[in-house]
């Protein structure tokens, strides 16, 4: 580290600090405030202590939503990460194909999330959607409105459609930064395709891959808009993930206390992962 110690640098950080404090700290304080109080309306609040937290931690509804979110995140990772790597490995490295691939692949990332939901809602419908129609024409009994399994499949395929490109672009960026000499040496050494991947490409993209895994984990753990548009959390509660449940509770039923307690538990989980993310990142950075 050759950075100079200069506490005046705080003044340069101050605008960011104030802005983020305004848009993060104050709202967070409100949430903490709600989580420890009870209300009967009319803006009268009573101290409730850890009551809401205990209620949350003993509520089946919370744990079910949590389980759904975790399962969803792990399925997403299990599909998107290997798929993203395979696609990145087979992307063109030069010529006209590169910008074409990059632009087309980045496209889903820039579609508003509810439009992503709308696209798949329409695409999957049995009456007017190509996917639903083709599935039924093939004799598959597919209907994401009624069948929980079909709803899950639809939401997962939609997320793969929406976010695999992020993994691809990250891995691709990591792959193109490997010097040619490594590939040449591997050829000379008679390495197989798998050995090249295992001993050259994978170690070199380890860092970006880590970022991809953690980003995808956290973003899928927080997913709200897309499944809400497609399934609305149903059928039943089968696709009610944590954030959908949270918004239902806070905005739909106006149960501020439980919602706030849930928010805080939720936020702490995210914080834990952020911390792991940050630690691993800074460690892998110092290794080089």
């Amino acid at each position: 580290m050759d950075k100079t110690w200069n506490n005046k640098a705080w003044f340069m950080v101050l605008p960011v600090l104030l802005l983020v404090a305004f848009s993060a700290v104050i709202p967070l304080m409100t949430v903490v405030n709600y989580s420890v109080q009870d209300t009967f309306g009319n803006n009268q609040f009573f101290w409730a202590g850890t009551e809401w937290f205990e209620e949350m931690l003993h509520s089946d509804r919370f744990w079910q939503a949590m389980a759904r979110s975790l399962i969803f995140s792990f399925v997403i990772l299990a599909i998107e990460i290997p798929l993203g790597i395979v696609i990145a490995l087979n992307m063109p490295r030069s010529g006209w194909g590169v910008p074409v691939c990059l632009v087309l692949m980045a496209l889903p990332l820039l579609i508003p999330w509810n439009v992503v939901g709308t696209i798949w809602q329409v695409f999957g419908r049995v009456d007017i959607g190509l996917l639903g129609y083709v599935m039924n024409a093939l004799g598959v009994d597919y209907n994401y409105v009624n069948d929980p399994l079909d709803a899950w499949v639809t939401v997962i395929v939609m997320d793969v459609w929406h976010w695999t490109s992020l993994v691809v672009l990250l891995c691709y960026a990591g792959l193109v930064s490997i010097p040619d000499a490594y590939y040449q040496a591997a050829k000379i050494d008679g390495a197989s395709r798998w050995s090249i991947f295992r001993h050259i490409q994978l170690p070199k993209i380890r860092r970006v891959l880590l970022i991809a895994v953690l980003l995808r984990f956290m973003d899928s753990f927080m997913i709200y808009t897309e499944p809400f548009v497609v399934t609305g959390g149903g059928p039943g509660n089968s696709t009610t993930f944590l954030s959908i449940d949270l918004v239902k509770m806070a905005v739909g039923q106006f149960d501020l206390g439980p919602a706030a307690a849930m928010s805080i538990i939720y936020f702490l989980i995210i914080l834990l992962f952020s911390w792991v993310f940050y630690t691993v990142m800074t460690n892998s950075g110092s290794e080089r």
């Binding site: 927080m222 709200y224 905005v251």
Partner: peptide
């Protein structure tokens, strides 16, 4: 960084 990871659902109501 943690704010980048903050779930919007948590913040909507506040």
């Amino acid at each position: 960084l943690t704010n980048r990871m903050a779930p919007p659902a948590v913040f909507a109501l506040p």
